[in-house]
Amino acid sequence: MKSEFQSQYSTKVMEHFMNPQNVGQIEDPSGVGDVGNPTCGDIMRLFIKVEDGVITDAKFMTFGCGAAIATSSMVTEMVKGKTVEEALEISNRTVTEALGGLPKVKMHCSVLSEQALKSAINDYYERQDKPSPVNIPEDEHEQCDLYDSDEEE
């Protein structure tokens, strides 16, 4: 895959970085995902609004690098209009692909976007006292390295 050899941001990444979609907060969210930590240099806060099982709105706030902002923007674009179950299919790989790839050292940002989304959906289930089908690996980001850079895709 292209991204393995990429060292620069794709045009798509730069577009989403310079004109990020869905920046902001949802006043009355159905779920919020808050992942990352400032020590590692990136935090994503993702808000979703769910109506009749469909994600009708998604917004984000991100402290992080260009890739972190671009993946946040992309993941919020991707979830809108999807059912919660469909949204759970979104992975760091699909976000990365939609962005035309990411430099290898930036892959952890895409993992963070997946985590933010899953965490928001998890929160949605919890707010309704429903058992959550979401499995979020805990505290992995504490080590500031979610992506094993030796691992080839």
Binding site: M18, G64, C65, G66, A68
Partner: peptide, 14 residues
């Protein structure tokens, strides 16, 4: 404070 350096230098570069 509250912003990340790479995002800042990319924005300035633009």
């Amino acid at each position: 404070e509250f912003v990340e350096g790479e995002a800042l230098i990319l924005s300035l570069d633009m």
